[in-house]
Design a protein around this nucleic acid. Sequence first.
DNA 1: ATGTCGCAGAGACTGCGA
Length: 262
Amino acid sequence: MKIATWNVNSLTARLPHVLQWTAANPVDLLCLQELKLTDDKFPHDALREAGYAHCAAFGQKTYNGVAILSRHPLQEVVKNIEGFEDEHARVIAATVDTAHGPVRVMNGYFVNGQEPGSEKFAYKMAWLTGLRAFVQAQMARHERLVLLGDFNIAPEDRDSFDPEGLRETIHHTTEEREHFRALLALGLVDSFRMFEQPEKSFSWWDYRMLGYQKNRGLRIDHILVSEGLKPHVKACAVDRTPRKWEKPSDHAPVILDIARGA
DNA sequence: ATGTCGCAGAGACTGCGA
């Protein structure tokens, strides 16, 4: 079974990319962030034709918005963080049945935070604290759990094209990295780091300054798996292919491969 | 230091968020 995450930076603008990518990569679940559309505009028909008959969407106008596209039925859909009031649509969770039992999938568009010291950074910290409590509660109920999405955190120096020059700037601060480690401390594993990866592997590149062409990127899109799921993980990789297409999202998809049966 | 996007509400560009 394959599960992917992709910040599409507007599903309206990127629907052709999603259809082209899923045609070549028919993953079982595709978790999207930054839909930038309301639920009444969600393209259910086009996605059903692409094989995703079971979509759970949580959108809003202009900003944010997340969705889980699935080839299999979804159960127990939850929107946003239980116990944390939020005006933004940033989290959607659902359960999918697999050959080795149910898997809980939590898809998040984490707060960007703009700049350390800003109000938006304070919101990012509060949001991360709220998310952690919610993930902990979900983990208590779901042994096999995936937390994935656009974390807007580069966890380590090797996840940034310029760790020295960008030290303690947004995505790189000690506080953000401590939040990331606190999520791992709940019993989650960064599936990407379970495997050998190319040097300078990133998932996001700025549209400006030829960021992609110069590989000036960050690894901020992650797939964390619970200990109960870890033995079944076969692979995790970034697919840079759609970042090279015309009018791309600034993010590339990350794909997790989980063994069937087991 | 921002040379890029996408969106909204205007008003044929500007501001915002990333």
